[in-house]
């Protein structure tokens, strides 16, 4: 069964542990600039929001790639860039509506989240549970449970 990254911005403190974990996993170096997950700081609202690829079922990037370098990982559902095939044309970066696939000057290829092969480093590194790795069909389960608790409290009060 596939899983997805579930992101809860309310829990995010903006510490960037996820970005560091991502760069370590993929490049063996601690460098937030190389991370495939980004935490955005909406300063004046006091909100921090982690954002990365949601692994679309019908992925724009995958369909747009002229050399079929983006492939489905059957085990995880991730859309994965095959660096050996990628020619760095960047058409996928235009096709993706979310901006979550990006070109890397250093390698001349594009990079995107590949769910770390099924054990995402960002989720493991997050100290507050703002990023979790949950069943794809039930990403809303936690929220449902919270609302269920509230409802129960209201009904039983």
């Amino acid at each position: 069964m596939w899983k997805v990254l579930a992101i809860d911005p309310v829990k995010c403190t903006g510490c960037l542990q996820c970005e560091m974990a991502c760069s370590i996993e993929n490049y063996g170096v601690i460098a937030t600039s190389k991370s495939r997950i980004k935490v955005f700081n909406f300063e004046h609202e006091g909100r921090k929001v982690p954002y990365t690829c949601t692994q679309c079922a019908e992925a724009w990037c995958l369909h747009a790639c002229p050399v079929d370098a983006i492939r489905l990982d059957q085990g995880t559902g991730a859309k994965v860039v095959d660096e050996g095939t990628c020619v760095g044309c960047k058409v996928c970066t235009i096709a993706c509506p979310f901006g979550t696939i990006n070109y890397v000057q250093e390698t001349g290829k594009v990079q995107k989240c590949d769910l770390c092969g099924g054990d995402p480093a960002c989720a493991a590194a997050c100290p507050t549970g703002a990023i979790t790795y949950v069943e794809a069909d039930w990403a809303g389960l936690n929220k449902m449970q919270q609302w269920a608790a509230k409802t129960a409290a209201a009904v039983l009060a």
Binding site: T13, G14, K48
Partner: peptide
């Protein structure tokens, strides 16, 4: 609340 860089 908010974290500085790397702070848990």
């Amino acid at each position: 609340n908010a974290a500085c860089f790397g702070c848990t």
